[in-house]
Write a protein that binds this DNA or RNA. Structure first.
Lengths: 231, 231
DNA sequence: TATAAAAAATGACATTTATCAATCATACAG
DNA sequence: CTGTATGATTGATAAATGTCATTTTTTATA
């Protein structure tokens, strides 16, 4: 982990996180003067599950995975973090511990921001507080959907869900770099990596996607949605 | 659904929901004069997934299940609601729709409370707002754990988790009425009802629990925890 | 470029879980 | 008390998924 100072001003870089727009000029300055930049290489752990949630992490560039470290060295990836995201899990408001880990997938530039400052903002700025709550709630609604997907769909449906998620929410494109390994796709869908390989192959054989190991292109979005919906 | 007016004052009955204690006298009065009581019989739907989240529901007596209506008529039970709970899902702050349904398990008395009033409180009373956020976050931390359980454990581990949950969080006792049917236990653990039967039988054969169809008693909490931990 | 390491892919097989069909138990209405 | 409906239980079987061993491909590094 190298310490570089490449980002000069929150104003410019934080455009991505909607909630910062509710901060006053003073609050914004406080934020800007209390952040600490860091660069992470792929694979590096940025936040460790169980550690005190004294800092939030703002994603400036790159991609990271948020994952719960479960039993038997199994992980469950709950989110892909992209530029503009503020990473401050619910643990901060519940147990003062991070309840999941975050690791860089690609080279990442990020800023540490004191959790206490965020909490201050939410106490003194009720518009910020409401949109923060709204943010958490949107995530929870998404979590509920993921949970239903994971418990009620078979492998093909679950994997289709994730391919669509990557296309719609992470990259906003029909064609994208598959930044996750097969193992990681398995960690997102609750399946073994071998099964991921097999089902991706099936999708390709059926002409639903085009894919080599590091690249995905959705050819037949309609049938992919169908597969996801049918389970 | 019968309309009775059996509860006279929030002050007494709402003891259960911690957050109401952060309200001022005025706010409490506003709440008390804007609630509408209702009684539900077992099986009745109290809140319907997808409907506008214009009202929250406060549980006075009885038990209910919160569940996501998924695909192929499958449900995923996400919570057991008990007296003292305020039921206002994250949908209220995300899409203004209830994102899950709630149905009575036993006879239930409950009060409808306008969502708008709750939102008002959280705008004007920052202590209330913070504890509300904290509540949602605690639930989310729990959700993450459930998700890991559901994806990484085999049936015995998942069912053990639920038996422990019922004992610790719902009834606070080693021995309790099994208010859920085998089907519903399946809906909580992502397994078929027949499998629930089989595994309960195994637990009983192993001397971990004692159980008839409507009653559970934990005999060997240690081994039950073991089963839950091992997956 | 050569080499090592990591990830992907494949096939055979074992295990887990769901489904189906039937029977049994229980509670409730008449 | 008796029939009926619902839930619980059981056993047989099928389907889904995981594991293991091995090979191939890709990526990273010297």
């Amino acid at each position: 982990m190298t310490d570089l100072n490449l980002i000069n001003d929150c104003e410019k870089c934080t455009a991505g996180w909607q909630n910062f727009k509710h901060l006053t000029k003073n609050e914004m300055e406080l934020l800007n003067s209390n952040r600490y930049e860091a660069a992470f290489r792929p694979g590096e752990v940025m936040i460790k599950q169980g550690s005190p949630s004294s800092n939030a992490l703002f994603m400036a560039t790159g991609f990271a995975k948020s994952y719960i470290e479960g039993i038997n060295d199994k992980n469950l990836i709950i989110d892909i973090e992209k530029p503009g995201n503020l990473i401050l899990g619910p643990g901060a408001w519940a147990t003062s511990r991070h309840n999941y880990s975050v690791a860089a997938i690609s080279p990442v530039q990020a800023c540490f921001v004191s959790t206490e400052i965020i909490k201050q903002f939410s106490r003194t700025n009720s518009v910020f507080a409401e949109s923060l709550l709204s943010d958490y709630c949107k995530k929870t609604v998404g979590l509920h959907e993921r949970m239903a997907s994971l418990t009620q769909k078979r492998m093909a449906g679950r994997l289709a869900d994730i391919l669509i998620y990557m296309s719609d929410d992470v990259f906003g494109a029909e064609e994208y770099e598959m930044i996750l390994t097969r193992q990681e796709l398995g960690d997102m869908t609750g399946m073994a990596k071998e099964c991921v390989v097999r089902i991706l192959r099936e999708f390709e054989d059926d002409g639903i996607i085009e894919s080599d190991s590091s690249h995905v292109r959705i050819l037949d979005r309609h049938r992919l949605h169908d597969t996801a919906a049918k389970g």
